[in-house]
Design a binder for these strands. Structure first.
Lengths: 214, 214
DNA sequence: TAGATTGTTAATCGATTAACAATC
DNA sequence: TAGATTGTTAATCGATTAACAATC
């Protein structure tokens, strides 16, 4: 399983394969060919085979792919075969939404802490997790194994907090703040910029309207 | 401003340019060259010039780009120069988080309605917007001009609701549900699949750990 | 064995980068 | 005018698709 030099594009598609395979499993489908899957997913069969062969030969000539096996293997590639401990910094609506989203836990992402600066929130519980003050964060990280931190803080706090997280050995940041974090390159940053997503939507909407006005 | 055939990659970068230009404006910077901007943003100057020239010549030889002017122009390209009316379907944590996010309104995305199926939420207000029942949705859409609907419902309701929205003339869906909506091709769909984002993070985290174990 | 379908190489397409003439 | 920097064409690089030999 040589994971070097696999393009971002391929990696981005893996979770979608995983989702479709999960649905096929639920539907009791045992095997599928790249061709059938390509019709379902509206991508080329060639792309599916190319993508998968970056990681290994999961299929069998004349048969196709075993759904359950492929699902499991992609799960392993995505690291879903072990539990990750996650904390959430910022217990506003978005932070609480993430904490409440039980589906994550099913995939092995366990929320072990929830932090905020607002003293009003101190002691409030979300899904059994008590909100702590950010002043307790360093102490918490020293006593607990945490791999992932979700950053749902406003921009002005986020950069500073990211540095604190890295200094305390956090290896991956799920960044919801609207800024680009500059961190050591061994720290994984995955951005979710909602406003940028909304602007893309707006661009396409706008374009459509313009084209049909003329 | 010929907007035909501009690649998804280019469009995806526009909001980031917009963000950086906004920050430069706040810092009182009047002009910037593609070279200076390329250093700030860590992309090539060539890419910046190519991207912008898809939409027009916004710069001036020997001078660079006027920050304020370019910011305004990109805003127009992104459709941020007029107000969009948005409703949110699903008033759970995520829906409420979106409704609360005042920054969207600043960019011209005005939340005009918030809907849920849960009768417990009926009449509850979020930032002055009263949560309505989804049974009232069709009526609402007949009496109000709405362009965008954010879908923060669970998967099983989302497909059905998307169809209802389209039947009532909604032109763009901001989809947070974990499924691919199949809708007429003139309907804009912008997906935010948080679990897929988290899996990409997990992939990279996992890969990093594996590489350094060997 | 014959048929089906993968894994993989080769061809094509598109996006990014480099180079430079145009021009402010 | 000389210097700077764009707009744009050409070269390169990478990703996607097509084709087909290998093989179950």
């Amino acid at each position: 399983m040589d994971a070097k030099g696999i393009s971002r594009a391929v990696i981005s598609r893996l979770p979608r394969y995983y989702r479709y395979l999960g649905e096929l499993m639920e539907d009791g489908v045992e095997r599928i060919s790249s061709n059938e899957l390509s019709e379902k997913m509206r991508v080329t069969a060639s792309q599916i085979r190319q993508d998968l062969n970056n990681f290994g030969g999961f299929g069998q000539q004349g048969y196709g792919y075993n759904v359950q096996y492929l699902y499991t293997e992609i799960g392993k590639i995505l690291g879903l075969d072990h539990v990750h401990h996650m904390i959430i910094l910022g217990a506003g609506n978005l932070g609480q939404a993430l904490a409440n989203y039980v589906q994550f836990e099913k995939r092995g992402f366990k929320v072990v802490g929830l932090f905020d600066v607002n003293p009003v929130l101190a002691g409030v519980s979300v899904r059994g997790i008590e909100i702590k003050m950010i002043s307790d964060l360093e102490e918490f990280l020293k006593n607990n194994s945490v791999q992932i931190a979700a950053l749902t803080l406003p921009k002005n706090k986020a950069a500073e907090m990211a540095d604190l997280l890295v200094a305390n050995n956090i290896k991956a940041i799920w960044n919801f703040a609207h800024l680009d974090l500059t961190l050591p390159e061994n720290v994984i940053v995955e951005n979710v910029h909602l406003s940028e997503s909304l602007m893309r939507l707006s661009y396409n909407l706008n374009r459509y309207v313009n084209e049909h006005q003329q």
